[in-house]
């Protein structure tokens, strides 16, 4: 269960230099193969909390319009990966690029701007307790856009309808008055209100019954098909991942032990992958 050998490992370069070299090599390979630039690119990422190494040499790419599912057991650093992409945490070493911008070197102001093209669906929805559902979903529009209230309302209703919720029934309710599945859907409606091109999901189906899980999976698929959103979904639900993803990565002890398509994962003979699948 060792990570794939890094070809730059014996080059004598420092980790930061290796990450930069890897980014350059990847860019030239893409140019040769005529591929688009990845929307999200993680290069040789390391994260340590004190003496604990949470992530160790993670390298990943997410292409435009793709849905990548990051799988792994509890405590393997899956959610941390999303926080790093958002710039909520700084890595100990390595680089993170979102649409070509280096998240690790961005100032607070630059990060705020970068995040305006991203949406995040939190594990426990993270809806604002003191605001109604309408105000929660309209939050981004009220904060950043100088729109007439009519237009805000139209966009909020459209967003809520997109996630199959009845706006008239729930718009004036508080988050505490909704079921878990409805809160997740409101979380998705809030995340997509400003039409971000990147959506990050942290365990979107955890704690939900199989039917609601299916509904959320369908919704993630619908977002990918209809809005061409690039998504990273962190989950430990294999069924869910195989339904929505066109790429999967399996994390274990801070390393990526498998990366490929769901079909390749099913056919993998890696012992840990087989253990995880069965």
């Amino acid at each position: 269960m060792t990570p794939e050998r890094d070809p730059l490992w014996d080059s004598g370069l420092l980790r930061e230099e290796r990450a930069a070299a890897r980014a350059l090599l990847d860019a030239s390979r893409r140019e040769e193969e005529g591929l688009e630039d990845p929307v999200i690119q993680l290069c040789d990422l390391v994260l340590e909390f004190g003496t604990t190494r949470v992530l160790d040499g993670i390298s990943l790419e997410v292409q435009p319009g793709d849905t990548l599912c990051v799988l792994g057991g509890s405590g393997t650093g899956k959610s941390t990966l999303l926080r790093l992409i958002l710039g909520l945490l700084r890595p100990t070493a390595g680089q993170i690029f979102v649409r070509g911008s280096d998240v690790c070197r961005a100032t607070d102001r630059e990060l705020m701007e970068l995040r305006q093209d991203m949406g995040m669906v939190f594990q426990a929805s993270a809806l604002f307790d003191s605001l109604t559902i309408y105000d929660n979903v309209a939050f981004y529009l009220h904060e950043h856009l100088d729109l007439a209230e009519d237009e805000v309302e139209a966009r909020v209703l459209e967003s809520l309808e997109f996630v199959d919720l009845d706006p008239e029934q729930i718009r004036d309710l508080l988050p505490a008055e909704l079921s878990g599945g409805m809160r997740k859907r409101v979380g998705i409606a809030r995340a997509l209100i400003h039409r971000p091109s990147i959506l990050l999901y942290d365990e979107p189906t955890s704690g939900l019954d199989p039917i609601t899980t299916r509904t959320i999976d369908d919704l993630i698929g619908k977002l990918q098909r209809e809005l061409a959103v690039t998504s990273v979904v962190v989950t430990h639900d294999i069924r869910s991942a195989f339904r929505i993803a066109n790429g999967v990565a399996l994390l274990c002890d801070g390393h990526i032990v498998f990366q490929g398509t769901p079909e390749e994962m099913m056919a993998s003979d890696n012992a840990y992958v087989r253990d995880f699948l069965h």
């Binding site: 926080r83 958002l86 909520l88 607070d108 705020m112 701007e113 995040r115 305006q116 991203m118 949406g119 995040m120 939190f122 594990q123 426990a124 993270a126 809806l127 604002f128 307790d129 939050f139 981004y140 904060e143 950043h144």
Partner: peptide
Amino acid sequence: MRVTEQIDALKTMGVD
């Protein structure tokens, strides 16, 4: 707000 990730939600929506 912090333990329920609402502070992180604010940051991800570009709000300080």
